[in-house]
């Protein structure tokens, strides 16, 4: 793994269009962080360390979505300088909450928001890292589960597959003994098609899941849509839920479009 036998593997953390919350997740590791810097060299992590060691790096973690032409160039360069590339958090894996703009008229938005729209140079959509370069691992979440970051890094160091759940949030909820917010309270919840991993934060507090961890690999959108629609509390809630955090994930794009098409009929 290391460049030379005596050296520790190097890690680089990059920021794209994002809120920095996932990088903070790494800094918030506290107990594990000291152990981590004992086994890896944090070579490039501007939010944590002023010193930047020269690349190439063994592992690159990319926070944020790719949303400007400049970022398209930068992600390609980063891909070249990192042996293993990890997309960190839902901005990097699905375009993030700023992907809300993907469903609106970008030019109109720019004119409303900015005093000098001519300074804005933006891609038509807030895109995921995998739209531009090959990604080796995706860590979902808004923010990521910091323990999944550790698990991914440790697994790579040990040359094994990281143990990241691929099953529905419902299973995590049921292991915790939470009442199902859909069945018991009639609330809409994306849980049945969302990947577990957050620790069922929202349902544990009596709220429906809004999908930070994105669609699970086996998301059965067609079966889920009637369930979601029948629990809407106001018109349009189903589409809003799907499009809020992981809205640009392909399965959620499809689900929202299907619902809109059904409503038009």
């Amino acid at each position: 793994m290391a460049n030379k036998k005596s050296k520790k593997p190097t890690i680089a953390v990059y920021k794209f269009s994002s809120c920095d919350g996932c990088q903070l997740g790494i800094l918030n590791l506290e107990d594990e962080l000291l152990d981590l810097v004992g086994v890896v060299e944090i070579a490039h992590f501007l939010e944590a360390r002023r010193q930047v060691l020269p690349g190439p790096y063994d592992i690159g973690l990319v926070e944020g979505s790719v949303s400007t032409p400049e970022e398209v160039q930068r992600i390609k360069e980063i891909r070249h300088s990192c042996g293993i590339l990890i997309a960190l958090g839902t901005c990097a894996t699905a375009g993030g909450v700023q992907g809300l703009r993907n469903f609106e008229d970008l030019e109109e938005l720019i004119n409303i928001v900015y005093e000098h729209p001519e300074f804005i140079d933006s891609l038509p959509n807030s895109t995921r890292v995998a739209d531009h370069v090959k990604v080796d691992y995706e860590l979902w979440g808004c923010p990521v589960n910091k323990y999944q970051v550790v698990e991914a890094l440790v697994a790579i160091l040990q040359n094994r597959r990281p143990n990241l759940p691929q099953y529905s949030l419902c299973l995590e909820c049921k292991r915790l003994g939470n009442p199902c917010v859909t069945v018991a309270y009639g609330m809409p919840c994306l849980g049945p098609i969302v990947r577990a991993g957050c620790g069922a934060l929202c349902p544990s507090n009596g709220r429906g899941c809004y999908g930070c961890f994105g669609p699970m690999d086996t998301a059965e959108v067609d079966a889920f849509i009637p369930v979601l629609k029948s629990h809407q509390r106001y018109p349009g809630e189903a589409v809003r839920l799907l499009r809020t955090i992981s809205g640009y994930a392909p399965a959620f794009v499809d689900a929202a479009e299907l619902i809109l098409a059904q409503e038009e009929e």
Binding site: S168, C170, L171, C180, P192, E220, D222, A223, F224, V227
Partner: peptide, 13 residues
């Protein structure tokens, strides 16, 4: 299976 979401709730309850 067209109605099943594969969520697994049935197995955990």
């Amino acid at each position: 299976s067209a109605r099943c979401m594969s969520c697994g709730n049935c197995t955990f309850v």
